[in-house]
Nucleic acid binder design. Structure first.
Lengths: 110, 110
DNA sequence: TTAAATAATTGCAATATTACGATAAATGTC
DNA sequence: GACATTTATCGTAATATTGCAATTATTTAA
């Protein structure tokens, strides 16, 4: 199949999975880290920064944009990308809720 | 292709992507949440809990086990699963480092 | 208008993922 | 041993992902 049966899970579970999925490729992790590192927008130097072809980077950027984690603005012939801070914060809350599940009450029974 | 070019990324970037990938399916998110929720090990009631077939759940458990996030112990004819708390904590540190990247210095330039 | 620069889209090949029926393996019970 | 219970593995079909060459916008400069 290759198709997740999303209808049997909660919205929260599907949302977590969607965010996680987009982080599930090192190129997208790298793009995001780069956007965080530099203190301004990136105007299309991601292709030279990361070693992938231009259509490949463009595709990864599209996925990040569709999830709302980055914003892109046309500036002349190039496009300026940066983190969508508001949505990043929202995403972070969702992911932290998942990652910070209470572990203290568990005894190591296995 | 379908194959990520991991050699062009840092170990940290690949590690983040691997963890994120395993969270990238709602069934695995659901399994983990269930293992956290109950205060003891789960002895194979995950199949009835989640609505997927037994081989499918078994496959998802395998992936979680291979990443070290859960432990499984044979108890009679069934297997007892629980969170690997030590590895979960390590994973969390890696993911938090990624999620908590400093956003404060960014002006919304796009 | 033509050409250059840059990014998006299309099309496609290679590989990965998901799901599950069928089967096998492991253990416990009689 | 024969059988039941439970989980893992195998095989396979359907779909998704990744990467890039080729092409198509889109905008700027000359």
């Amino acid at each position: 199949m290759g198709l997740a049966k999303t209808e049997m899970f909660t919205n929260q579970q599907n949302e977590i999975a969607l965010f996680a999925k987009v982080f599930g490729h090192p190129a997208r992790v790298s793009i995001l880290q780069h956007l965080f590192k530099i203190d301004s927008c990136v105007c299309g130097d991601l292709v030279s920064e990361i070693g992938l072809a231009q259509p490949t980077i463009s595709q990864h950027l599209k996925e990040l944009r569709h999830l709302g984690l980055i914003k892109g603005n046309v500036e002349g012939t190039s496009v300026c990308y940066c983190i969508n801070t508001e949505n990043w914060t929202k995403m972070k809350e969702t992911m932290l809720q998942f990652l910070n599940q209470d572990i203290s009450t568990k005894e190591d029974c296995c």
